[in-house]
Design a binder for these strands. Structure first.
Lengths: 238, 238
DNA sequence: CAGTGGTCTAGACCACGCC
DNA sequence: GCGTGGTCTAGACCACTGA
């Protein structure tokens, strides 16, 4: 924990999760917190602001910060979270089977991406199962310009852990679209779809901290298993 | 524009939208901006932080703030935006037909909401069409405890505009889930669905600034017209 | 009225990118 | 070494809430 407000954030979040600050109660005021943690008020405010955007609390002017009833739906397709992280937090038995790793150009039109030249990439196709049910079929294109080579072991584990942990890449943001489509024959077979069952397709482009585009992903979900949960803050800038 | 950082945010956003700061270029540094706007650096940083979370820029340590290529997908199912706002920004011909307004209790189980007592609400059912195609069927339950009565004129226009503009309610946050389901017979008819076509259902609970729950919404989308676009920031708190 | 969160300031030190 | 953004401080004034 290098920075103070991160430490304070985690401390408060923990206390909320463990009901030391119960749902519906008020946190100590910002001035009180700043004394408690021996820091300035602005630093406390940064921590609170993180709690706010993550749905832990709601701040009310003139009153205080209320603890919200967070049925923590840490299933952020909305955030950027890898399958591995997801699965760890949900405690389910899951498997990842690598179906294919090979060099391919990115099919940019699928991703609504304009470019004049071909993008060389490592193509990884993986099937994700939870409790032996096939749930998601992932097609990843990782640009060669950023990551020249990917081994099968890495793909079977977690690409994100490898990119961030081993390669020191800093993944920063992504754009995603979610649509419902008719499956291909391959998808029908791999995902064990019933007749005429549609699939949910999430296509994303992922960028590094220095704004380098480095990955295209197409995630094909079984529609009956698909569940996206979101916490949305209404933003009024003024 | 009451607060400075909001004004600065809008000014910078405008300049980015109108390519005064072109895509790929760097904004002036924070110290330069603070001199430009005659304000402190922290204030500039607040404005930049809004630009960051809204996908206008990416900040790079030791370098500066890069303007991102925002193909502004202002279709935030992800944010909380009403149909009217959405539609205005997309410049399409659309209609809202009110199918039903009546008093009903909220079917809380549908929304995964635990409560011991019945919730009295105004039920509003509306069909949204774009270019004469039925796109969305909305079922709204607005709690009587917050808004005792809703007229048909208001429902035909925009509920949000009415709540925020006329009633002075401050809508603050919402939880949403997105799933794919089989349509009811009524939905099949109203949305002109083809045989066996599934629907995308977005269920949300909306809260006011003072954390009062005040609305349940079930939005049934034609799956072939459904398109959800998201900009996701990877959050690393530490 | 006192207490709360919202905004803003003028400074400081640090880690990082780059030359 | 210089400029960048990231963090942090100790104050200040405001608008709002509730008694």
């Amino acid at each position: 924990m290098r920075n103070k407000y991160g430490a304070i954030y985690h401390d408060l979040a923990d206390k909320i999760i463990h009901h030391i600050y119960p749902v519906g109660s008020y946190l100590p005021s910002e001035t009180q917190l700043s004394e408690l943690y021996g820091t300035s008020r602005e630093t406390i405010r940064k921590a609170l602001s993180e709690l706010l955007t993550n749905g832990f609390i709601q701040k009310i002017r003139g009153k205080g910060s209320v603890v919200l009833n967070l049925q923590r739906f840490n299933f952020p397709v909305s955030g950027i979270t890898s399958y591995k992280e997801l699965n760890k937090s949900l405690n389910m038995h899951s498997q990842t089977k690598v179906l294919c790793i090979e060099d391919r150009h990115v099919p940019v039109e699928k991703f609504d991406y304009q470019t004049t030249h071909e993008l060389a990439a490592t193509y990884v196709e993986r099937l994700r199962t939870i409790e032996n049910d096939p749930i998601v079929l992932d097609h990843d294109y990782i640009l060669k310009t950023v990551v020249p080579h990917i081994s099968e072991e890495v793909a079977a584990d977690s690409l994100y852990a490898y990119f961030e942990g081993k390669l020191g890449l800093n993944i920063s943001y992504a754009t995603k679209t979610i649509t419902v489509e008719h499956p291909t024959v391959e998808e029908t077979k791999l995902l064990a779809l019933s007749a005429d069952q549609d699939v949910v397709v999430i296509r994303s482009r992922t960028y590094l901290e220095d704004t380098t585009l480095f990955q295209f992903t197409e995630s094909v979900h079984r529609s009956d298993k698909f569940n996206f949960v979101d916490f949305a803050q209404r933003q009024k800038i003024n």
